[in-house]
Every structure is written in C-alpha cells, then in structure tokens.
Amino acid sequence: MSVNIYVGNLSYEMTESKLRDLFSAHGSVSSIKIITDQYSGGSKGFGFVEMDDQQAANNAIRELNGQNILNRELKVNISKPKTNSWR
C-alpha cells in the first residue's frame, strides 16, 4: 500500500527532481508533485511525495521533518485526505 506524504515550506528553488532525490534516500518513490500556481506557474511552496512502503515513508518523515533544505525548514507528515470544510 502506498503512502502519500505532505511536504510543506519548500524553497521556491526546489524541483521535483531534487525532492525525489531527497526521499529516494529513504526508499522507493512512486510519484512526486510540487503544487504550482495556475497563473504564474511558480511553486506554491508545498507538494506531495508518494512512497511504496509504509516503513520507508515513516523513516523519511522522521528524518526529513524539520530539516533545513535550501534555507527552509521542511514540514513533512502523512498527507490528510482533502475535506470539504465549507459544509
């Protein structure tokens, strides 16, 4: 079962390739997505990483949360499902 991980406070210089390298050190990465602004195309400063293995995901979260990467302290945790908070 794959695990979806939220990665926040990303530097605007962070690329999907660099993010993949960071997480690949902890296990198999199935997908990477940095969220971008639909108008400017620039990073919104957060993204999602999907890892194949629960243990690898837990290790990555533990090791990378709070790490200073490109002068930004990463916020890394299990992604919460999207909810309709307007109801």
Rank of each mutant, 00 (worst) to 15 (best):
L22G: 04
S28I: 11
T36M: 02
N59F: 04
Q55L: 14
S40M: 03
K82C: 10
V76L: 03
L70I: 15
Y39T: 15
T36R: 06
I35L: 04
V29S: 12
N59A: 09
E50Q: 10
G41H: 00
S40L: 01
S85V: 10
E63F: 08
F23C: 01
V49W: 06
E16L: 07
T15R: 02
M14G: 02
E73D: 13
R20Y: 13
W86F: 15
E73M: 13
V7K: 03
G41D: 00
G41V: 01
S17L: 11
H26M: 02
I5E: 08
G41S: 03
D53I: 05
G42R: 06
V29P: 09
A57Y: 10
T83R: 14
S11Q: 07
G41R: 00
Q55M: 14
V3L: 12
R87E: 07
W86Q: 15
S11M: 05
G42H: 05
R72G: 08
E63H: 09
N77E: 14
E13L: 11
F46L: 00
T83D: 09
W86C: 14
K80G: 05
N71H: 11
S17M: 10
R72M: 13
L19P: 01
R62W: 08
N58P: 06
H26T: 02
G42E: 09
S43K: 00
F46Q: 01
E73R: 15
I78M: 12
Y39M: 12
V49M: 03
W86G: 15
G47E: 01
G41W: 00
E73S: 14
L70E: 15
G45D: 02
E13G: 02
N4A: 07
S2Y: 03
P81T: 03
I5A: 07
G8L: 07
W86V: 15
D52C: 11
V49N: 05
I35G: 02
S30R: 13
M14A: 07
V76Q: 04
V7R: 02
M1K: 13
K75H: 08
F48R: 00
N84Y: 10
R87C: 09
Q38Y: 02
L22N: 06
S31E: 06
S40H: 01
V7Q: 04
K18L: 13
N71W: 07
H26G: 04
S24Q: 10
V3Q: 14
S17D: 09
D21A: 15
H26C: 05
L10D: 06
G41P: 08
G66P: 05
E16Y: 02
R20W: 11
